[in-house]
Simulated scan of single mutants.
Amino acid sequence: MNIYGLLGRDIGYSFSRNYFSNKFNTESLKCQYQNFDLQTIEELKNIIQRTDVKGMNVTIPYKEEVIPYLDTLDPIAKEIGAVNVIKFESNGKLTGYNSDYYGFTESLKPLLNTTIKKALILGTGGASKAIAYALDKLNIEYIFVSRNPDFRELSYNDLDEDIIKDFKLIINCTPLGTHPNTENHPDIPYEYLGKNHVLYDLIYNPEETIFMQKGKQKGAKTSNGLNMLILQAEKSWEIWNQ
């Protein structure tokens, strides 16, 4: 039995486990998917010695912390600086990949319009790095928005009417609004949104966040992260089996 799993912390909700378990059942594959719920990344040492584990997805908060435990990085993962897929090679080596950028790119393309030239990325964690890479490839300028900004970033207090009207794509890479704390949402001036805006939330649970609702009220297009997750999961399976 080949074992695959999700590496993260406090991941009882796990989209990946449900998705791959259903896939394995539907396609009659002799595989099992489980959560590797670790309180510290150091606990990974025990898992990577196992011979039955063939691949992992990686989620918050380990997309960057896992890199020192890997033998090699795919060039795209290296450029992004974050890993969400680990392949356990037949020679015992571990290779890190990033399929987040692919899932985001392909799910975003149908939402874009000709007025979208600039994007705000809310949050600066591991997921935001893949988003930035994808926007580079789509030739969309971007700025990170952070609660603790450095000189290249904006704070939430910086966001005014001019900025919101100039940056037509806004991507929430923070966990604000995730179940069970569904009343939370990023603190941006939603009143300046319009019909040419796109609000993309990486969260998928709940299906529609307050962030998305507030955008929809102003005529903006909205999307949650479910399609991105499905696309990156299928890309993970492709990587593990190539």
Rank of each mutant, 00 (worst) to 15 (best):
L7M: 11
G219D: 09
G125N: 03
L138E: 10
P189S: 01
L120I: 04
I239A: 07
K63N: 05
T26A: 14
D100L: 09
K109D: 07
E43Q: 14
G103W: 04
I3Y: 14
T105Q: 15
V198P: 02
H197V: 11
N148D: 06
N148W: 00
N91P: 10
V58R: 05
E207Q: 10
G12P: 12
T72C: 12
I76P: 05
F144W: 03
R50A: 07
L70A: 14
K168C: 06
M56F: 15
A119F: 02
L120N: 02
L44W: 10
D187N: 09
L111G: 06
Y190E: 01
K63C: 00
N205D: 09
N57S: 14
D160T: 01
S236A: 15
M212D: 04
Y69C: 13
M56S: 12
F211E: 10
I3W: 08
G12D: 11
L138V: 06
K137F: 00
I80E: 04
K221R: 11
G225W: 01
E238M: 15
Y97C: 09
I86V: 15
G126T: 05
Q213W: 02
G55A: 05
G225L: 12
D150T: 10
K45T: 07
I76V: 15
I41P: 11
V53G: 07
G55Y: 00
E64T: 13
L73V: 12
F211V: 07
P110C: 03
K165F: 00
R17F: 06
L176C: 01
F88L: 08
K235F: 13
P61A: 10
L94V: 12
P149A: 01
E234Q: 15
K30P: 03
T26G: 00
N157G: 08
R9Y: 02
V85L: 08
P61Y: 04
F88R: 15
S223E: 15
G219N: 10
E79S: 12
F104K: 14
Y62G: 11
I164T: 06
I121L: 02
L193F: 12
K218Y: 05
P180S: 11
S28E: 07
W237P: 05
E234P: 06
L111D: 06
K87M: 05
V145C: 08
G12V: 10
Y204I: 14
F211N: 04
E64R: 12
T51Y: 00
D74C: 03
T95N: 08
F167E: 07
A130E: 00
T115Q: 14
